[in-house]
């Protein structure tokens, strides 16, 4: 599996003028990589993700999956929505079976995969519940395994933890990491949270508020599960925070200047 983003541009038309959100973006994601797109709000990271998903068309450039150009949504790219978008009129079971039914997976195999996925997400016994009867964390896990059920080549996640508070967020990040380690699908995730980006990903791409330009492409090679208090972790965090500051169009603040401020 290889996901290739080739000089993607996106312009939106406002009444008379054009607004360029993305301009000539290039990067390649390799098999099994967990890549995070990080950036200030309005930098076009979600737009880029929906272009990869095929929900909207790019104004220029193309997205290739295993050399095939993306033109519309397809089961080769699973998508986890910010608000989960679980179908409220279906039970957990039917929600998870939906992608498999669409891909015409035979009944027996379907049941087996369902069991496997429920076990993976520790949701056994919950399959008869409706989404509104689940807690936020359970919904998130259902959304995750539903997106995996059709065995996509790549999983796209749009701020999957955007709607939860800080403490909940950290424990859900653990859940997400555990789930991902069991499956090792290629992931492209969008977030605006530096900590989340380092904790989860193998590689962080920082996008600028100006036309989505890539200001930093940082590999994270820390052993998992990651120690949030470790020295290396902290270094990565500072580097990304710096990159984010540049991305927002602010003057970079050097560690030197910061230290001087502390002393003064």
């Amino acid at each position: 599996m290889e996901l290739k983003v080739e000089s993607i541009s996106k312009k939106f038309k406002n009444d008379s003028s054009f607004q360029t959100v993305l301009k000539d973006l290039d990067f390649t994601v390799r098999e099994g990589q967990f890549v995070t797109l990080l950036g200030p709000s309005g930098c076009g990271k979600t737009t880029l993700l929906t272009i990869i998903a095929g929900f909207q068309a790019a104004s220029g450039g193309r997205v290739l999956i295993n050399g095939c150009q993306v033109t519309r949504p397809g089961p080769d790219r699973g998508f986890v929505f910010q608000n989960y978008a679980l179908f409220p009129w279906m039970t957990v079971r039917d929600n998870i079976l939906y992608p498999m039914k669409q891909r015409k997976v035979p009944g027996k195999e379907r049941e087996k995969r369902l069991e496997e996925l429920l076990g993976m997400a520790q949701l056994e016994g919950k399959e008869k519940l409706f989404p509104h009867q689940l807690s936020g964390g359970m919904k998130q896990r259902v959304a995750f395994i539903r997106a995996l059920a059709g065995k996509p080549e790549v999983l796209l996640m749009d701020e999957p933890l955007g709607a939860v508070d800080m403490q909940m967020r950290q424990s859900l990040q653990d859940d997400l990491e555990v789930l991902w380690l069991k499956d090792k699908t290629t992931v492209v995730m969008v977030t605006h949270d530096v900590d989340e980006a380092i904790y989860l990903s193998d590689r962080v791409i920082v996008m600028s508020a100006q036309e989505g330009k890539i200001v930093e492409d940082l590999p994270v090679r820390l052993p998992r599960p990651r120690d949030r208090k470790g020295m290396e972790y902290h270094k990565h965090k500072e580097r990304l925070a710096e990159a984010l500051r540049i991305a927002m169009g602010k003057r970079p603040e050097s560690p030197e200047a910061k230290r001087q401020l502390c002393l003064a």
């Binding site: 929900f55 089961p75 790219r77 992608p99 669409q102 891909r103």
Partner: peptide, 15 residues
Amino acid sequence: ISRDYYNAARSMGGG
């Protein structure tokens, strides 16, 4: 109906 439902269905292979 939220656009997300259509998008979700289509990205799971729904015709």
